[in-house]
Design a protein around this nucleic acid. Structure first.
Lengths: 118, 118
DNA sequence: GGTTTGTTCAACCGAAAGGTTGAGTAAGGA
DNA sequence: TCCTTACTCAACCTTTCGGTTGAACAAACC
């Protein structure tokens, strides 16, 4: 799974990682702060952060022994663009189908009216 | 990974599945049609489709022996909403930081001007 | 210099993911 | 009825994932 988009989607497929992203949207946090609410070891959280970092979703600086984690909002654009593109196509197709069905209904009604008239 | 959002993100973390979604955005297709371009067996593609179906991204009907696959565009909203929510928060926070930095720069300049005046 | 705090690295484990082959089912066509 | 087409199920294999424990490193603190 080497490509960027795959890494980003995979990173957000985990509930703990999504929750960390949600919390990081509010404020930067250290590894220990992030680990606190979850029923897993701090090492596990450290691994989760590596996944998020490899996906480009977060960056880490250094502050004494602490490694504050910061959310990188730009990466979200990648996903949004991908999603919106295909959703739009699919919706347009759906609307075309609706149009075709409406046209067929119209024709049907015209036929019925002609029958009534005869 | 029982929750809906996790299943959707996980489903789209695979390049083959993302490509299938891209093609299904253009037109419905059967399992064999979908399998054709990839260097994997049709059974593997069948498994991929099950993943997409469990995530609610596609639905399947029946047409003689064929099982046409159809893209369900609504599920994309779930993801988009999630992404946009946290991106917006993170961006606002970034802009607040910008404002603080700008303010600090202003104060710095004011101080410099005062020093110049004295 | 030794200890505490914050974090990562390494080795391991069980479960799930993504692939295979081979057999089974379901429905049209000869 | 038999054959072919379209697809799924079952069993298996290998790699990755998410977790663990235990040790190591890095920087403050006493």
């Amino acid at each position: 799974m080497e490509d960027r988009l795959s890494r980003v989607f995979a990173a957000l497929a985990d509930p703990i990682r999504r929750d960390m992203v949600a919390r990081l949207a509010v404020a930067d946090a250290t590894v220990n702060e992030l680990a606190e609410p979850y029923a897993v070891t701090v090492q596990a959280v450290s691994k989760h952060l590596k996944v998020l970092e490899d996906a480009g979703l977060v960056s880490r600086s250094r502050q004494a022994q602490r490694r504050p984690v910061h959310l990188e909002a730009e990466v979200f654009d990648l996903m949004t663009k991908w999603i919106e593109r295909y959703r739009r196509e699919a919706e347009q197709r759906y609307q075309r189908l609706d149009a075709v069905l409406a046209e067929m209904a119209d024709e049907q009604q015209t036929q019925t009216l002609e029958e009534d008239a005869s």
